[in-house]
Amino acid sequence: MDERNFTYMFYGLAAAWTTIVLYVLTLVTRENKLKTEVETLKNLIKERKV
């Protein structure tokens, strides 16, 4: 059996997990951005009301 067979199996599994991790990072980054934006807009409206 080709030695690369085993190595590429790990590449495949690593690629699958990397895809998931990258999407989780996207979700986390977006979550933080949205929270900040909501807070900023709420403060802006409060300031304008005053």
């Binding site: 059996m1 080709d2 067979n5 085993f6 590429y8 199996m9 495949g12 599994l13 699958a16």
Partner: peptide, 11 residues
């Protein structure tokens, strides 16, 4: 195929 067939478990 040997061990590489395990990729199918995610593919």
């Amino acid at each position: 195929q040997g061990p590489i067939y395990r990729i199918f478990y995610f593919h």
